[in-house]
Amino acid sequence: MAEQFVGKASEFKDGDRQIVRIGEQEIGIFKHEGEFYAYSNFCLHQGGPACEGLTIARVEERLRPDKTSMGLHFTQDMNFVCPWHGYEYDMKTGEHVSNRKLKLRKYDVVQKGNDVYVVA
């Protein structure tokens, strides 16, 4: 495992993504709320490009005390969705939102000055 240079931090705006190939691995690097996150770009479902789909806030359904619905609402947590079949992953952990046992491979991201490295 070595640090691989993937780009300049100044080139990433908040919400930007970059897909890189390091050796035989394809990795998606996200900048979200000032932090970098890197995950394997192979969806756990059928190997789709997991990091290239929509980024969307988590939707939750709020219930009244009698368990009737108050409608769907967006939370502050951000997810990303595989464009092939809609597998949705937590931006901060890489876990599948409805089955936390499923988790995308996470790579450490190291920022040295303006340089961004992925440990892969």
Binding site: K13, D16, Q18, G23, E52
Partner: peptide, 18 residues
């Protein structure tokens, strides 16, 4: 090949924020 590939970083796509 592995030794050579380990150093190769290829940028495939850049996806900008909306």
């Amino acid at each position: 090949g592995k030794a050579a590939k380990a150093l190769k970083v290829e940028i495939l796509r850049k996806i900008s924020a909306p």
